[in-house]
Design a protein around this nucleic acid. Structure first.
Lengths: 224, 224
DNA sequence: TTTGCAATGAGTGGATCCACTCATTTTTAT
DNA sequence: ATAAAAATGAGTGGATCCACTCATTGCAAA
């Protein structure tokens, strides 16, 4: 259901397998490496969406792994999460100041791990979905849109970003069926019918002039 | 040297002025607001690069501020840093899991603050650099349109106008099969794949290149 | 606590889009 | 005039979208 790829770089075998198991159980694809050099190699080959990395590793440490991966221009934006027993404030600040996206200290619960992953995936999709502001002169009536519920606006926002039903389902962590239901309800409330009418509407909506009241509401409600 | 703009949202006046002073001293531009609503308003008006926000605020709290600011499509990618006395692990995880970029607990040193800001600015510039490459790839796709034949451009224009295959077939006095064949050929020449990718491209082309010469030619061809 | 709405998910059926291949006719170019 | 390219049309299969209905869960307001 969710084909995001997570790379684990962790020395201790039991913990590495445990983490992989947790992540896989939540529907993500996962690969792992026991040391930094191999981790960097795997990152290059598989271009994971998220790298979760311990700091104390045999050979090069987690900080080195991060700096070396950061300098690889071929890699798309990748979230980097430190997962380590080094839990002092100084350790945390060092990791974050290097540019890490999150810093989890051991011991951690599986909920903390998964929530961190989900938050960073959301962040990545926001970045990828971001489009520069464009002015256009298309007249759209917003009267009916106020009837949409939160989930429906969230879906409409994703449609406007150009995503298809399977992609939206993956991004919002719900099933394709739910997205389809939302699409139908949106179409009904907006008096739309026929193929492509919804995406057509959404895309035209997207290029409305900045400062638009509905788009502000849409954005403010669209997560959590 | 550095014209990055930082927005501070902090209730306590002394702390707010202190933070502003520190940041200004390091060469950044800084604006501030004492409460959430005003902070959101300032973010919309000034589009800061980084927002530093307390959690305990009068009126709406910092989490609400973040949710509402997070996905405003008019705003470019903005780093969001929580700066708060709420320092338990649960508090930290809540903030990070909402998608914040960093979470600093009081009391903090000015070095910690500045380093956090610098790290997030670095991150932003990486993202923007990558973003511009993606924009360039759109230009490449746009150039490929010149390879399209007359009939294909005619069909593409109709797609951009929002018509479906049966409607286009009727307008151009050919069969639906012919239109479908043209659509496939267009998609292939433009390296498009997946559902809605063609209409999505056509609509974006129409609104993103309003005064484009090709689109004018294309429109004149399709009418006769 | 109960009622109602929102959100999620499943099932079914039809229409459309997408991606191949193949064939015939017309236009264009050498 | 002959070859190449374009335009038209058909067949097939798969994936997605659209439009219904129905059921379960969760949350929030009455």
């Amino acid at each position: 259901m969710n084909d995001s790829l997570i790379l684990i770089i962790e020395d201790e075998q039991a913990l590495r397998e445990n983490i992989s198991e947790i992540i896989a159980h939540y529907g993500f694809r996962v690969i792992s490496a026991p040391a930094g050099e191999e981790g960097i190699q795997m990152a290059l080959e598989h271009t994971p969406d998220i790298i979760i990395c311990d700091i104390m590793l045999p050979g090069i440490d987690g900080f080195d792994v991060f700096s070396r991966i950061k300098q690889i221009p071929q890699l798309p934006p990748t979230a980097f999460i430190f997962l380590t027993a080094k839990s002092t404030r100084a350790d945390t600040r060092t990791g974050m100041n290097m540019g890490a996206d999150d810093y989890l200290t051991k011991p951690f619960t599986k909920e903390e791990l998964i929530n961190s992953i989900k938050a960073r995936l959301e962040k990545l999709s926001e970045i990828n979905g971001y489009q520069s502001k464009q002015d256009a002169s298309i007249e759209v009536t917003f009267d009916k849109i106020t009837n949409l519920t939160k989930a429906e606006r969230r879906v409409l926002n994703q449609i406007a970003e150009g995503f298809t039903t399977p992609q939206i389902a993956q991004k919002l962590f719900v099933s394709k069926k739910t997205i389809e239901n939302h699409r139908v309800n949106i179409s009904r409330k907006l008096d739309l019918s026929g193929p492509n009418s919804l995406i057509s509407f959404a895309l035209r909506l997207k290029v409305q002039k900045p400062g638009n009241q509905f788009l502000n509401d849409l954005a403010s409600i669209s997560t959590h």
